[in-house]
Simulated scan of single mutants.
Amino acid sequence: MDIKEHTMTANSAYLDLLDLHLSESLSDIRGMPTQRSRNGRIYWYDRYRVGSDTKERFLGEDSPELNAKLKFHKAHKDDAKARKERMSSLARIMTADRFLRLDKTSGSLLSAMAKAGFFRLGGVIIGTYAFRAYEGELGIRLSVEQGAYTQDIDIAGFEHLSVAISETDQASPKADDIFKDLKFEAIPAMPNEHIWKWTQTKGEAVVEFLAPSFGSEESTKYLPALGVSAKCLNHLNYLIRDPIDAVLNYGSGVLVKVPSPQRYAIHKLIVSERRAEGPSPIKARKDRMQAELLISVLAQERPDALWDAYQEALSEGPKWVARLESALQKMPKVSGVLNGLKGAEV
């Protein structure tokens, strides 16, 4: 597969822009960053007072990266204006090197959701919009065909994390208000129904919220931190575990969460077989194309991470193994790449 790369200047611009957005996301800390332990994991909150009440705002799960950003914020909290100007300049460098840009509809919507806290509070973009984010993460130049626009914006989240976060923090403004302002309407727009899908009133854009399922896909779950219901889908638990930060190219950039590229690639192999069994053979081919590109790059750049993601998927059970084997039978080159990682035998 012919893989093209962005220039070193554009790659550096992306990484600098990501760092600045992460710093910007902490620039509105109002009080004292505070740790809280939940289910064996440590999370950071902005703890501050409003009158006689104590409030908490979710910042993220504890990590060396978040700790570094908190220290950076403390040292540079007065640099907001210069940071914004630098962000705009870096975004222009990326565009000049042909980083794919979001269209106005998706860019406006994702920007509004980012400002409302959807990605800070556990929302993870999946699907083609996540794939486009790997252009910066991996330094690869996507063609128009590879990163082709889709009318579907899919956002997933864990129910248990959303419940925990919602005790102290929730997205604001709420999803209903954002979608109303941007001329989207709920489906189904009926009282007492769980709403997990919105469509553009004068266009074809569709937004769906999803949550991991471990069996039936006929139910929905409520994600209280995001204020939305989500349709249950299998395999999502694997996909959105340990997401990464990314910036999408719109305006001066939109900070979002996406799956790690190695999980995305392996997940696409599985999903391609599910689509092949249903009415979406064209989407199955697109899934395989995205998986092949990412696996080709990751086998060279991050072989250990790719190997671990592949082995984790194989350990999920016989149905996962069967779908992976079926997908790889259609993709002998990709099968060879995966089998060649650490001399593995599948």
Rank of each mutant, 00 (worst) to 15 (best):
residue 97 D to Q: 11
residue 74 K to C: 07
residue 86 R to Q: 12
residue 97 D to S: 06
residue 58 F to W: 12
residue 113 M to L: 12
residue 108 S to L: 03
residue 98 R to A: 07
residue 52 S to W: 02
residue 79 D to T: 00
residue 105 T to F: 10
residue 86 R to G: 00
residue 52 S to P: 06
residue 46 D to E: 08
residue 47 R to E: 14
residue 78 D to V: 01
residue 27 S to A: 05
residue 110 L to I: 13
residue 61 E to R: 07
residue 67 N to E: 15
residue 55 K to C: 03
residue 93 I to T: 12
residue 28 D to L: 09
residue 74 K to F: 11
residue 57 R to Q: 12
residue 53 D to Y: 01
residue 60 G to N: 04
residue 70 L to H: 03
residue 62 D to Q: 15
residue 110 L to G: 00
residue 119 F to H: 05
residue 39 N to R: 06
residue 43 Y to A: 00
residue 112 A to R: 10
residue 33 P to S: 04
residue 62 D to A: 12
residue 29 I to S: 01
residue 57 R to N: 12
residue 73 H to Y: 08
residue 66 L to V: 04
residue 102 L to Q: 06
residue 113 M to W: 02
residue 91 A to D: 07
residue 51 G to F: 03
residue 48 Y to P: 03
residue 36 R to Y: 02
residue 100 L to G: 13
residue 29 I to M: 04
residue 55 K to F: 09
residue 120 R to Q: 15
residue 120 R to Y: 06
residue 32 M to L: 14
residue 93 I to G: 10
residue 27 S to G: 01
residue 60 G to W: 07
residue 28 D to G: 07
residue 106 S to N: 12
residue 46 D to K: 06
residue 102 L to C: 10
residue 85 E to G: 02
residue 108 S to M: 02
residue 95 T to I: 14
residue 66 L to Q: 08
residue 40 G to K: 10
residue 51 G to P: 09
residue 79 D to N: 01
residue 118 F to W: 09
residue 66 L to M: 02
residue 69 K to I: 04
residue 33 P to M: 03
residue 74 K to V: 15
residue 44 W to K: 02
residue 28 D to C: 09
residue 32 M to A: 13
residue 73 H to K: 02
residue 113 M to D: 06
residue 58 F to K: 09
residue 64 P to K: 06
residue 84 K to Q: 09
residue 81 K to Y: 02
residue 67 N to T: 11
residue 81 K to W: 00
residue 31 G to F: 12
residue 66 L to D: 08
residue 114 A to V: 13
residue 101 R to K: 14
residue 112 A to K: 09
residue 48 Y to D: 08
residue 38 R to T: 04
residue 57 R to S: 11
residue 61 E to I: 02
residue 77 K to Q: 11
residue 91 A to P: 11
